[in-house]
Design a protein around this nucleic acid. Structure first.
Lengths: 187, 187
DNA sequence: AAATCTATAGACCGGTCGGTCTAGTGTGGT
DNA sequence: ACCACACTAGACCGACCGGTCTATAGATTT
């Protein structure tokens, strides 16, 4: 038998990847099970509240994973413009490597379920809240005046999210760089 | 019998509304049929390529509808800041009136299907292209220098799209206003 | 070694999915 | 009057949906 918690994590990671690529309603539990190699019984043992719980935890996991990666990328940058460029590069690379299959790991599920499942909506809200917090810290570190940090972090997150979506639609990452370059000019 | 084309349009309008609220995979054809009062045979008579065609045309319709409304709102504005504020107000009102059910009529379907259906992806791309074109014209009219118009229109569209998504997730329109206010400061 | 608990395993369920098919109905042309 | 044609109407299909259930295997405790 597999070690404690191993199956749970494998299922969760598979689900996170599929939800990111195909969205909530576009991803079937059977597919998650097939790709993770787990039987149905295990799924409902580890996630007794079913698909909703699986999606909530997937969003939380993705949010944390990407949030950590972003923090690393951003904190390594010497100044604001470099940091924003690194941010854009990070997402652009993910887009290209997945043939535009993987944009924001939260956005698709967020839009699909915001009005349908309070649980998932809250998980998405939390994930974005964490990113916003990280952005504020980074902006402060780059010398942005304290009273501008809040709105600016919001603007950066919004435009990055929009750019990520447009890039998938256009199958072209240039919009991401175009946006981050202009954001850099604001600092 | 209903007049020529009447059923087709009723189905299309119902579909557009449902796709906007629930996304592509979250909307069933049976629901579209039930709400529009059409039988299944009519659907496949008017849309022989099925759900994909219905979604493509819905996106095109919504894109045109909202695009026209935006053009009206924006062209009525005396200057850039007023125009951007009007843009934000338009979307914020839609969000509030629908209890955060209706954000961008294209975004959810776009994210869900960009990697899955080339047809729908192209329709979304066209819709956003039209909006971008309208934005460029408006910016030019507000005296933005010609070489800045392209990138700036992209930034406005991106950040507005991101803000619309975040607003639904946060169930709060303030992010929309926060973003349009900062964009206005860029002109 | 017996008992207990965690987790796996997958058959099974009613319901809904997108899509097809055949029959019929109202309308305009001739 | 008749015929085409455009459109309506909904029964029907296999596939798949999320979810439940019972049985069992492996590890852990006593």
């Amino acid at each position: 038998m597999a070690p404690r918690g191993e199956t749970r994590e494998r299922v969760l990671r598979t689900a996170a990847e599929l939800f990111q690529r195909q969205g909530y309603h576009g991803t079937g539990l059977n597919q998650v099970l097939a790709e993770s190699g787990a039987p149905k019984g295990s799924l409902y043992f580890h996630f007794p509240e079913g698909k909703e719980q699986l999606a909530s935890e997937s969003v939380a996991l993705s949010g944390r994973t990407v949030g950590d990666a972003l923090a690393e990328v951003v904190l390594a940058a010497p100044d604001g413009p470099a940091g924003l460029a690194a941010l854009g590069d990070y997402f652009a690379r993910n887009l290209l490597e997945s043939d535009f299959g993987k944009g924001c790991p939260v956005a698709t599920v967020a839009l699909e379920t915001a009005a349908e499942s309070e649980t998932i909506r809250a998980a998405c809200d939390t994930a974005y809240g964490e990113w916003l917090g990280g952005l504020r810290v980074a902006l402060l570190g780059w010398g942005v005046p304290e009273e501008r940090v809040g709105p600016l972090a919001t603007l950066v997150l919004s435009s990055l999210q929009g750019a990520l979506m447009l890039a998938r639609v256009q199958r072209d990452v240039s919009v991401v760089h175009q946006v981050t370059r202009q954001l850099a000019g604001l600092l």
